[in-house]
Simulated scan of single mutants.
Amino acid sequence: MTTEFELIARIAALFGAPEGVAVGIGDDGAVLDPGRFDLVTMDTMVEGVHFDRDWSSPQDVGWKLLASNLSDIAAMGGGPGAFFLSMALPAALDPGWPEGVLEGIKEAARALVPESFEVSAGGGDLSSTHGPIVLTMTLMGEASPAGPVLRRGAVPGDRIVLLGQTGLAAAGLAILRGDVDVEPGQFACALRAHRRPGAQVRAGALLGLYGVPSAMIDVSDGLVQDLGHILKASEVGARLEAYSLPHHPELVMLREEYGVDILRLMLTGGDDYELLMTIPPARMPKIWDMARRHSWDVHDIGEVRSPDEGLVVLGPEGEPVVFEHGGYRHFEAK
């Protein structure tokens, strides 16, 4: 294993000092430029819970760690900035593994972050562990001049809009775990969606800038569960029209050739990192215009209703669909 100080030096060399950080790697703490960042998010990835080294490379893990954080900032209508990285690594770990994680973070920053934003390392922490690998990233961000978009703000009559597609990452995980007996080479998009998800960085920032959503969240724990967070925060109900959800060709293949229940994957699968929002009817022309201009994959999938109606999910034929729960839950006994 590379020494702690060698790894710190490598991080400093790989990532330049980010804008908004006056003092970064090399001191007891970072010093931020006053008033620069007003958004903060944090995500942790634990080996055996969020990734498996048998089917994900260290570059995949690093990519996904940054993508999950970027998606949170996007969901608040802001733009990303400096990140702080913590790694707890076994002493016997191949030194190439943490190096690969750093490479994956760098690759994701290049691929997912528009040039108008600068995402780089402002500091962090390193430790050894006798347990599984634990990676934690804290990402700073800036809200739009209109202010952050929160989960609360939806009102009855708002439309429920999905930017992107759901279910593909969950399908990829099922294939990798062997839950579905298929030829993995047929499902390259699903495997990539699990290993190297996207993040709607530019879209989130633009939606926040133009004040389009009344509420927004990223889909990380499952569409139904994450919609439920908006409903709870906004104290409203909803009708989710599952028949309006997009069907990726690989999901269609899983259903038609292998009998997989793709509706469950699309409604309760996690790790999609797409944006789910509510939009007042008067602002719907704006989202359609933005979708045309920026080639966004936008879908109108339901309506916010009164709180006494709760959440009603309508299936392919318009029938009510019931699930035991709507997505991934930490701390739940298996």
Rank of each mutant, 00 (worst) to 15 (best):
residue 5 F to C: 05
residue 5 F to M: 14
residue 10 R to H: 11
residue 10 R to T: 13
residue 12 A to G: 06
residue 22 A to N: 11
residue 29 G to E: 15
residue 33 D to V: 15
residue 50 H to V: 09
residue 51 F to P: 00
residue 54 D to W: 13
residue 54 D to E: 15
residue 57 S to A: 15
residue 62 G to F: 13
residue 71 S to N: 10
residue 71 S to M: 08
residue 77 G to N: 09
residue 86 S to K: 09
residue 89 L to N: 00
residue 98 P to V: 03
residue 99 E to S: 12
residue 101 V to E: 03
residue 103 E to N: 08
residue 104 G to S: 08
residue 106 K to I: 02
residue 107 E to F: 05
residue 108 A to S: 14
residue 109 A to P: 05
residue 111 A to P: 02
residue 111 A to D: 15
residue 111 A to R: 13
residue 125 D to C: 05
residue 135 L to M: 12
residue 135 L to D: 00
residue 136 T to L: 01
residue 136 T to D: 03
residue 141 G to K: 00
residue 141 G to A: 12
residue 143 A to D: 05
residue 146 A to F: 04
residue 146 A to L: 15
residue 156 P to H: 07
residue 159 R to D: 11
residue 160 I to C: 01
residue 196 R to F: 03
residue 198 G to E: 05
residue 204 G to N: 04
residue 208 G to F: 06
residue 213 P to K: 10
residue 219 V to D: 02
residue 220 S to F: 11
residue 231 L to R: 00
residue 239 R to I: 10
residue 240 L to C: 09
residue 240 L to S: 09
residue 242 A to Y: 07
residue 243 Y to P: 01
residue 245 L to W: 02
residue 251 L to G: 00
residue 252 V to I: 14
residue 258 Y to S: 07
residue 266 M to R: 02
residue 280 P to F: 07
residue 283 R to A: 06
residue 292 R to G: 13
residue 296 W to A: 01
residue 297 D to N: 13
residue 302 G to Q: 02
residue 302 G to A: 04
residue 304 V to M: 07
residue 306 S to R: 13
residue 309 E to P: 05
residue 313 V to W: 03
residue 314 L to H: 08
residue 314 L to G: 03
residue 318 G to K: 07
residue 319 E to M: 08
residue 322 V to C: 06
residue 323 F to M: 12
residue 327 G to D: 06
residue 333 A to N: 10
